[in-house]
Design a protein around this nucleic acid. Structure first.
Lengths: 209, 209
DNA sequence: CAAATTTTTGACCGGTTGGACAAACGTTAG
DNA sequence: CTAACGTTTGTCCAACCGGTCAAAAATTTG
């Protein structure tokens, strides 16, 4: 499939990491086309030609960043397992996803940017690897439904709704903080969100009869 | 506050509409910085200088587009009213929001793009007009909770979750269709989503005891 | 029709951007 | 020390981009 990883010196490894960190900052804030190599180079504390010595093209940086991102981004879903109580399992999946939105908002925004633009660079991955993973987990959830452990619904849309509600707090952070205002928009907003989402996904909005 | 609307000829009105339609297409797909005036001009079937005769700057097009968008975009929330059954009222708000994601995906993506980049052009509106509207509706929802009509939760996060889940089907459309695959990703996906969201928001995931 | 006004276009400009390149600089191994 | 190799930088370039301008073409008005 792919060539063997090129041998790299210590400096190359360090500088490449530095560049990727800077690029994550810049790309996630401005999008791919909205970011310039100069911006990334400055954020990484080096000159543009020096940066281009480590990554020959702007696209190479973005591609490397995206490949690394996807692994860690899907880790919570991979951990969703058939062992343990289904409701507990789903609840901790939601919690993990929300923690990622809190701790890695730049990664979330980078991903959102890519999808928004039609996922030109990762569409094959979405239709291949991602679809396979979601289908697999949907089957697990369907098993829980057949066993009467959770209510019967569409597992795929359930997963979508978890992604949407949790990533919202990273991708739409500006809006969330603006609407909540200075007092409620502080650090506590993620705990409020966690409490709300748990209640929503478990009990819904009907009053307790 | 603002000067009176400039007098426009019939051609000016028509051409400005044509340009705004083309700009919506281009901006929503590529973001502001990722779009060029040439692209918009070509999509509108005119030359670049001709386009600049109707809008002096690229930003003017984006600003006009955004102003129009916001009114229609918040209309469903404005309609959320205290008359009628609370659960029915919320259910139809969700349905209307999902219909907007289906019928106006470009508008949704344009908005998402703006927020993702930190809302540089509409932040004052978010902190002013939008916050006021959401606070007002949150008060209505709180009234329903006090009256025991719906379960007690955080009304602000409830509104966020409705925004997130419905807009997801416009903003992340590529991903949704990729994961659902050719068979389930067709036109029926919005009906499936509507059914799922209704169940989620009303009953949650707990099995019926 | 003819004058006045509006609309359209080709040519152009200054600034930015992604990227190339060779020369200089630093480091390491023999 | 020195040759080989890895790293850094100044300079440059061609393409692109937002925007200007004067003049031509079309339209409206008297």
């Amino acid at each position: 499939m792919e060539g063997s990883a090129p041998r790299r010196t210590r400096i190359q490894q360090e500088k490449r990491e530095l560049i990727l960190e800077a690029a994550l900052e810049v790309f996630s804030a401005n999008g791919f086309r909205g970011s310039t190599i100069d911006q990334i180079a400055e954020a990484a504390g080096m000159s543009k030609p020096n940066l281009l010595y480590y990554f020959r093209r702007k696209e190479d940086i973005h591609e490397t960043l995206m490949q690394r991102l996807l692994d860690t981004w899907l880790a919570p879903l991979r951990e969703l397992d058939d062992i343990g109580d289904p409701l507990t399992e789903l609840r901790s999946y939601i919690r993990r996803k929300l923690e990622m939105a809190r701790d890695f908002p730049r990664e979330s925004r980078l991903f959102a940017n890519e999808i928004l633009q039609g996922a030109p660079r990762i569409k094959p991955m979405l239709e291949g690897e991602l679809k396979a993973l979601v289908d697999e987990k949907a089957a697990v959830i369907k098993g829980w439904m057949r066993a009467g452990k959770i209510a019967r619904t569409d597992p795929w849309h359930l997963i979508f709704s978890i992604w949407a509600t949790t990533q919202h707090y990273a991708d739409f952070d500006v809006q969330v903080r603006a609407v909540l205002g200075a007092d409620r928009g502080g650090d506590g907003r993620f705990e409020d969100a966690a409490r709300f989402l748990e209640q929503l996904f478990l009990d819904g909005l009907k009053p307790k009869g």
